[in-house]
Design a protein around this nucleic acid. Structure first.
Lengths: 175, 175
DNA sequence: GTCGAATTGTTCGCCTTCGAACTATATGGA
DNA sequence: TCCATATAGTTCGAAGGCGAACAATTCGAC
């Protein structure tokens, strides 16, 4: 097997076949790869997903943005502080609810986002190199399903066994 | 599209179709879901992947373990400190290299791992609910490809690191 | 109307990770 | 042999996310 001078990666045991396991490794390596690839844009690359959502849904309150990117409300405060300081995002008081603030991209923010999306395209190609178009499509829809499953179970208590989850896939099932 | 007052999740724009984007959301929600599901095992659930690797490859030095779980060497120190304090893992001096330590599971650690793998099975079912067996297989192999792609590109394109090394980087092309 | 409950953004303390040092050991060439 | 260099584990400070609070505001039941 392995005894010569090799640099072979370690294997996990039986559980290596699990989606949860590979999901974690893939995300960590992919995220790092993107941040290494893109430099010179401040902290925007790290929060590209957030910028995309803000761009597509301007004027949303912070709590909805936080939920959309799977980050806690409290965490989003510092993130928006930074992005605002960098001139990418702006917070304005909501006109209908004096508690909330309407978040939107600045003009500079839209430019930064355009650049980042371009870089993300290149990264995406590197990520999915070697996959057929069909495999890539299945990967995307399967990830959608996983996200929907977890979102559906989010509030629920702790049923030790996953029930049928028949109701799960609302919202983002197919294209 | 949507403008009535419902609670529909926010959409991202064009970039929503990217693997990198969905990968992140899926991993965050899945990871949280598992930690919510399993309680009473200390910090072991969070490091299940590490425990699996240690179990499958006993006696490895920390640096290889760190690479295997995509965590920095320095981060692994505190992790192993905790797991050792909880009696799940043990560090022993390597017999061949006095710099390194051989990491292995304790008897208790093997028991904990068995329990966690069972819980992970249930979580896996919840994660992949609604996927056909074929879709799940494609998801797994596609994630493998993504991991391999990122590992292959890891060393490349980063000049400001090791000087004359020239050793790393090569060799993770196929799988 | 009024008052309790829910929601929004925020602050604070804790924990985790990272990157840059540092020490001890190993390795390979002059 | 000697010494430059690489590697293993560790420490330390910085950065970021989380959960628990909290004031301001809105909503809802009465």
């Amino acid at each position: 097997m392995d005894q010569a001078g090799e640099e072979q990666p370690l294997r996990a045991g039986s559980g290596e076949m699990s989606v949860g396991y590979k999901l974690r490794l893939a995300q960590i390596t992919a995220y790092r790869g993107f941040e290494e690839r893109v430099t010179g844009y401040g902290s925007a690359p790290r929060y590209l997903g957030l910028l995309m959502i803000i761009d597509a849904n301007p004027g949303q309150p912070q709590s909805r943005l936080a939920e959309a990117v799977a980050v806690r409300r409290s965490s989003l405060v510092a993130i928006l502080d930074t992005l605002e300081r960098e001139g990418v995002v702006e917070r304005r008081p909501s006109e209908t609810d004096r508690r909330s603030k309407a978040v939107a991209l600045t003009a500079k923010g839209r430019g930064v986002l355009a650049d980042l999306l371009e870089a993300a395209d290149a990264h995406e190609a590197a990520l999915t190199a070697g996959l057929t178009e069909e495999e890539r499509a299945t990967l995307l829809s399967a990830l959608d399903r996983v996200i929907a499953n977890m979102r559906a179970a989010e509030g629920d208590a702790l049923p030790p066994l996953a029930t049928g989850a028949a109701s799960a896939g609302r919202g983002a099932a197919d294209s």
